[in-house]
Design a binder for these strands. Structure first.
Lengths: 342, 342
DNA sequence: ATGAAAGCGCTAACAG
DNA sequence: CTGTTAGCGCTTTCAT
């Protein structure tokens, strides 16, 4: 029996044991710290391992111990914001010797069939992840995903949204959207702006609703256009034309703000002289716009790190704690797109 | 013995066997297609599996069979170009039921200590990847990485560069840089440009050298500035001022082109009226520049797919074939930053 | 057509 | 302190 040629033959603890003249078990002990073994034995084993170029087999370790070090990470490569979140997750996890399993719905931007989207979830399950970090922003089947995980009582951490669903208790990490929006409002006030438009995201999304509500608590807007995404340019143009007295625009994301630049140019309104513009998220293109975009930086890298540390905490046995919501501090980045009118 | 509480208790083939009233082995057979089993048995097993919510344990499968379905992928989240490559790799691999293991040097942009960079390589090895896809663009220790893999005779595919190193035979996937650069040259000629500057990348990088050489074969440049990255803006400014007769600039990447826009604005030269500009790579910000940037589209998504298909091919047993270099077609994207001067 | 036996590389209880 | 024993969940050979 045992014939099929394997992909490769790496040295195992068996070979080390033979070479060092100890039992297989002893090698195992040494590899995990070797508490209470004779220094001589430890050295012998390490030497043999070194000579053989030994690398532990994490698959086997995980199988045997029943302890997963795999963390499912479902955050698709959308833009620089995502990239920073992903880096935060990656850096924290690998530092702790956990393994991020980055998987997301394929063909995100095409019309996705549900079948394929669930496949990625199953792939994670089949890799026996011990927890999962989700960025629901995109996921058409978010509820189904969540259920798939929490029904197996896998810990879940969400980034950039909090989740309230029956039977699900997930931790979440968010930028402090309310404070960010208020900082924008305050900034406008200080600059003397009174005629302000807010282009908001869909109210169904936490980040969009929080920003809109907090902003409206601070200032009276001429108008607030909610969920402009389906027909971006036309709505912006119409709205701006309908309110020629507008001196300031708060765009719910930098992506919207970029379009405001374009539309403003078409309408012959100069930024910041005729129109002050503020975005949100500090996406990479913002500082290269002309003028550079004033925006709210909300620390996606740290969001990633925090999300990772939360999931690790759960995986290390604190599964029963109450779910937390972590709000990360934000920071207004004043650049060239806003100007005083007093 | 066997006490430590495992992370979770998923149903195994053992439970299925018990519930379906067959042997453990039979379940295993069914799970891999069940060739030559009675249909009745197959159905019984599937039913039991379904009822238990069974999911196969890939870790165990891989451990036992000695066949890895893990593919190391070392392409860090730099920009939209990378994101498309990553998506291509991800989509192809998951479709084939392979698992991409995205890992990259942490703290890429900080001063990285070698130690941490090798850690990620070791993590891949410890996961018993069966092959690896590398994007060397960033890696300070690229040679060491390659060696770590190829000394274990793991197949390697490089993206966006070809590798020539003793004892290493890696496949590679590249955009057709020479053809791309010539297309730019041809475009300039058709528009009547004769006084052209090329801002090139470092000659040590394949993509940069290929673009520069091919471009210079087609047109006479006023000047070619090589490897401007260390002091981007000053060099551009000086060069542009030293050659006031310049009517066209070919920037080796869109990133350079973006800076050309800024410098041109400072010098009071309007694009495209006074200066035609072409970039390379079709990064996401290009179409939002004012005017939208003419550039060369390179098909990073397909590069990713091809890289993935190459590595799968190797992993499925064609380890001995000669290394291939795959050149992907490119396409000039004419937008608003170039103009005829005849 | 199915099952028994053997074992991948590893861990964890226990004994000596 | 070290080695023995008994597995994790799975595959593969071989016997029935």
């Amino acid at each position: 029996m045992e014939t099929m040629e394997p992909t490769r033959k790496e040295p195992s603890q068996h070979e080390i044991a033979a070479r060092a003249g100890v039992a297989r078990t002893t090698v195992s002990l040494v590899m995990r710290g070797g508490a209470g073994l004779k220094q001589e034995t430890i050295d012998k084993v390490h030497k043999a391992a070194e000579e053989l170029g030994y690398r532990p087999n994490l698959m086997a370790t995980m199988t045997r111990s029943g302890k997963s070090r795999m963390v499912g990470v479902m955050v698709p490569p959308i833009d620089s914001y995502w990239a920073r979140i992903a880096c935060g997750i990656h850096d924290y996890l690998t530092e702790q010797k956990y393994i991020p399993l980055f998987l997301w719905p394929s063909h995100m931007f095409e019309d996705l069939d549900e079948h394929r989207e669930l496949d990625q979830v199953h792939l994670m399950l089949d890799c026996r992840i011990g927890g999962v970090i989700l960025w629901p922003y995109f996921a058409k089947m978010f509820e189904k995903h969540i259920h798939e995980f929490s029904s197996r009582s896998l810990p879940v951490v969400t980034v950039d949204c909090s989740i309230e669903q029956a039977g699900v208790n997930a931790d979440s990490v968010l930028g402090d959207n309310r404070t960010g929006a208020k900082a924008v409002a305050k900034h406008f006030k200080e600059l003397g702006h009174k005629n302000i438009i807010h282009f908001a995201g869909p109210d169904s999304e936490d980040w969009a609703r929080d920003r809109r509500e907090a902003f409206e608590e601070e200032v009276d807007c001429l108008t607030v256009e909610v969920d402009i995404r389906p027909r971006l340019d036309p709505i912006m143009k119409t709205t701006l034309e309908a309110h020629p007295e507008t001196t300031a625009v708060f765009a719910a994301t930098d992506v919207f703000a970029r379009d405001v630049y374009r539309v403003a140019a078409e309408l012959g309104r100069r930024i910041p002289d005729d129109l002050s513009v503020v975005g949100y998220s500090d996406l990479d293109f913002g500082e290269y716009l002309n003028p550079p975009l004033t925006t709210v930086h909300d620390n996606p890298y740290n969001m990633g790190k925090r999300a990772a540390s939360l999931i690790v905490h759960r995986m290390e046995g604190n599964a029963e704690d109450d779910p937390t919501v972590q709000l990360l501090p934000v920071q207004l980045l004043q650049r060239g797109s806003t100007k005083s009118i007093v």
